[in-house]
Structure formats: C-alpha cells, structure tokens
C-alpha cells in the first residue's frame, strides 16, 4: 500500500512537471510585449481580418474534411480489400511529413496547367487564393479526421449492424441509421481536431496561397508576417488567438472522451 502511494506521488509529480513546462511555454507568449499593446493589436484591422478569414476557411475546410473522411473511414473500418494497407499509408503520409512539403505538392499538382484550367472552368482556382487556403487546410487535416473516425467505427459492435441488416435495412440505411449515430462521438472529436488543425495550418497555406497580407492572411500567416515585420505585439496577438482556438478544440475532445469514459 505504501509503495503504491509512492508510485502515485511519483506519477503526479512527473506529470505536473511535464504539464507545467508546456503551460509555462504557452503562457510566456503573454510576456513578449506589454499587455495593453497586445490587447490593442487584438482589435486591429489586420488581426480581425486574419481571425475572420481563419474562422471562415476553417469552418468550410472542416465541413469538407468530415464529408470526405466519413465514407473513407467507414470503408477502411468495415471492408478489407486488395491494396487497403497501401491506400491507408498514402492517405496518412501528410501526417508524417512537413506541411511545407504538402504545400509544394499541392502547388505543383493543382497549379499545373491542365489541372488548373480544369478547375477554372468550374470557377475554382487554388493558386494564391482563398480557395487555396481551404484546399491546403483540407489536406492538412484530412488524415487526422480519417484516423479518428475510423477508430470510432472500429469500436462499434458489428452485432448492431448485423441485426439491422437482418431486419431488412439496406447497407446504406444501416450506415445512416445505425453506424453514423453510434460513431457520433468520434465524428465530433474529428470535427474539433480538424478545426484546430485547419485553423493552425501554416506551411501548406503559405506555399499554396502565398501568404499575401490582408488577402490570404490567416492567423498563422499573420503571426509569421508580423515576426518578419518585427512587430511583436501583433505576432503575439495572432498567437494568442491561435492558442484560444487550439485550447477550445482540445477541451472539446477531452470532454467528449471523458463523457464516453463514464457512460461505457
């Protein structure tokens, strides 16, 4: 008993140090510049522009991400087929390589003459544009969403779907009425993490959309630009907004996870 007490104390102390270091690093943003300068910058035209742009693009990207991730995740979770492992690996590649490489790939593909003209005929142009921001965010967040939603589908007892099928539901109706509602928590978690990823996407957005001030300037770009301008209070203001968005996203996920802990 005494030993387990010591072990618990050790775990708590160690975790406290880890969390404390992370917290202090984030909190040190507040001490870069005088607080009132930062607060003034929070309401400056540029930061508000970047905030609105980040919010709109991230909402649009997240919606696309979820729409694309749910079917793919369901396929991966329920069916096995030739080349599945390779397909999964390809999809997950962007998680493991720098965002800036992703941006370069997207620029080369969606900026190539044929592809670009093809999209232009339907009014889409991804190079140096706000649509490009959405595209870059989409591919940055997609693999994370697929992973989370797949594991949500994996966690559903196949008995439910089996019963539904045996009672006469088609696979599609089973998916809509049984699997989707059961995977709701996972999908919500994917929404939260995708949104945070989209709002925080930097390298891919910088390369594909160009990072033009007040045009394709999302919050991470605003942070980078203002470091380049030597304008620290503006950079900190952008950083703080990103911290708030990330905190909200992570807190939602934690809430969803702890809910499922207590109910299951």
């Amino acid at each position: 008993m005494k030993k387990s007490g010591f072990f618990r104390l050790f775990l708590a102390g160690f975790s406290f140090i880890v969390v404390g270091t992370v917290f202090l690093s984030i909190a040190s943003l507040l001490f870069v510049d005088s607080p009132d300068a930062v607060i003034r910058c929070l309401f400056s035209e540029e930061i508000l522009y970047a905030f609105r742009l980040s919010l709109t693009t991230a909402v649009i990207s997240t919606s696309f991400v979820i729409c694309a991730a749910v079917p793919v995740a369901y396929l991966f979770s329920r069916y096995s087929f030739f080349g599945k492992r390779l397909m999964k690996t390809i999809l997950y590649i962007p998680v493991a390589f720098p965002e800036i490489v992703l941006g370069l790939c997207l620029l080369m593909f969606f900026g190539s003459d044929i592809v670009r003209r093809l999209f232009q005929t339907v009014g889409l142009d991804f190079v140096f544009s706000k649509q490009g921001i959405v595209l870059a965010q989409f591919f940055t967040a997609l693999p994370y969403a697929i992973r989370i939603i797949k594991s949500a589908f994996d966690g559903i007892d196949p008995q439910y779907e089996f019963v539904s099928r045996s009672l006469g539901y088609t696979p599609l109706r089973t998916f809509i009425h049984i699997s989707l509602p059961l995977a709701k928590r996972g999908i919500l978690a994917a929404v939260a993490i995708s949104f945070a990823r989209c709002a925080g996407a930097f390298g891919s957005v910088l390369i594909l959309a160009g990072g033009t001030r007040m045009v394709t300037e999302t919050l991470p770009i605003a942070l980078f630009l203002n470091i380049s301008y030597g304008n620290m209070s503006m950079a900190v203001a952008a950083g703080l907004m990103l911290v708030v968005i990330a905190f909200a996203g992570m807190y939602i996920i934690e809430t969803i996870e702890s809910d499922s802990d207590t109910t299951v």
Partner: peptide
C-alpha cells in the same frame, strides 16, 4: 501574390506559377 520571403518568389517563377 505578395510573398514574405524571396525564396517563395524563386519557387513561383521556377514552377511557372
């Protein structure tokens, strides 16, 4: 496009963008 670094300018010209 107004890029924050000169390296991006090189990339965009080299890639024909």
């Amino acid at each position: 496009v107004i890029a924050p670094t000169v390296n991006q300018l090189l990339l965009y010209i080299a890639a024909g963008k």
